[in-house]
Design a protein around this nucleic acid. Sequence first.
DNA 1: TATTGTTATACTCTATAACTATA
DNA 2: TATAGTTATAGAGTATAACAATA
Lengths: 168, 168
Amino acid sequence: MTASAARVDARPSLRKRVGNGAARRIDADEIGLDALVGHAGYAVRRFQIWIFQDFIRTLGDVDIRPTQYSVLTVIGANPGLSQMAVAKRLGIERARLVHLLDSLEQRKLVKRVKSKTDRRSHALHLTGQGETALAKFKRLAAEHERHVEAKIGKANRERLLQILADFT
Amino acid sequence: MTASAARVDARPSLRKRVGNGAARRIDADEIGLDALVGHAGYAVRRFQIWIFQDFIRTLGDVDIRPTQYSVLTVIGANPGLSQMAVAKRLGIERARLVHLLDSLEQRKLVKRVKSKTDRRSHALHLTGQGETALAKFKRLAAEHERHVEAKIGKANRERLLQILADFT
DNA sequence: TATTGTTATACTCTATAACTATA
DNA sequence: TATAGTTATAGAGTATAACAATA
C-alpha cells in the first residue's frame, strides 16, 4: 500500500521531473512512507527524537541532558545506591555510567563514597549543591513536560504513559 | 542497553544496608524512579530501545537495521528521489546518508543514477536484487511488528500510532 | 550566491573485552 | 570464581564545517 498523500503546505521543496524533462516544485511530505506508516517503531523513534531535542533545549541553560537527569533523579531518590544498581535500573552500561559520573562529580553534583559493607563498590550521593541543582532541573523538566503535553495533547500524553508503563 | 532484558525471574539483585550495617538482597525494581515516572520521554526512550532491539534481532539474518530499512522503503516507494529528498523526508543528515547509501550500494540493493535535469544530484533506485530483498525485509518487519503488538496489545499499538501520527 | 553530494571532525551512545581489587 | 568499578576500543548515530561541481 502506497501512502502518497499529496498535501499542500510550505514545506521544503525539491525538483521533480514531470513528463519529458520539465520540473516542478514538490513538497517533501509528498514523498510516501509506504510500509513505514504501519510501523510503531518509526513514529516512536521520531517522537523520541523530538522529545529529547526539546528536553536538551529546555535544560540548555543548565547543561543537563536526559541521561544525566535520569541518573541524578535516581540517586536523589535512592541515596547510597551502587553504580551497578543505578546502571541496571536505568539500562545504562556500567562502563558508560563511569564517565557520566566522572562528569557529574567534577561538577560537584554527585559524590562517590567508599562503601563500608562492600569495599569494591561506591555509595552514590548527591552533594548539597547537587540537591539544590536537581530541584531546579526538575522544575525545568516539568516545563519540558508541558511542551510535550502541548504537542500531543493532555489526554494523549496520559494515555501514552499508561500504554508504556511497563517500560520503566 | 540490556539486550537480554527479556530474561525471566532472574532479576538482578543488589546489597542494601538495613539498620546498622546488615545487608539484604533487593530487586532492582525496588529502586524508585521518582520524577522520571511522570516523564513521557523516559518511557518513550525505553520503549524505542526495546523496539529497535527487537527489529535488529528479527532482521538479524538479513543484516538490516531500522535506518537502512527506512531508506530502502522510501526509495522503493519513490524511485528517482535525490539524496537530499530522502534525507529531509526521514530526518537523516545528508552527510550520514552518504555512508548509508555507500553500504547499500556495495550490497547491490540500491543504485545512484546521475540525474539529467540537475547534474549535481543523484536519482536513487532499487536494483532488481534490491526489490526482491526489500520484499523479504518487509515480511520480516511485519513479523517484528507482531512482536510489538504482542508486547503492548493490539488496541494500544493502534492508539499509539494514532497519537504519534504527526511525527512521521 | 545557493544547493548537492562528499569528506572530515567531534561528540554521544551502545556493545564488548579485559584489567584491578575486592568478595 | 564471581562481582564492582575502571579503562579501552569499535561501531552507530548526531552535529558541524568545508569543499568541488553545478545550479
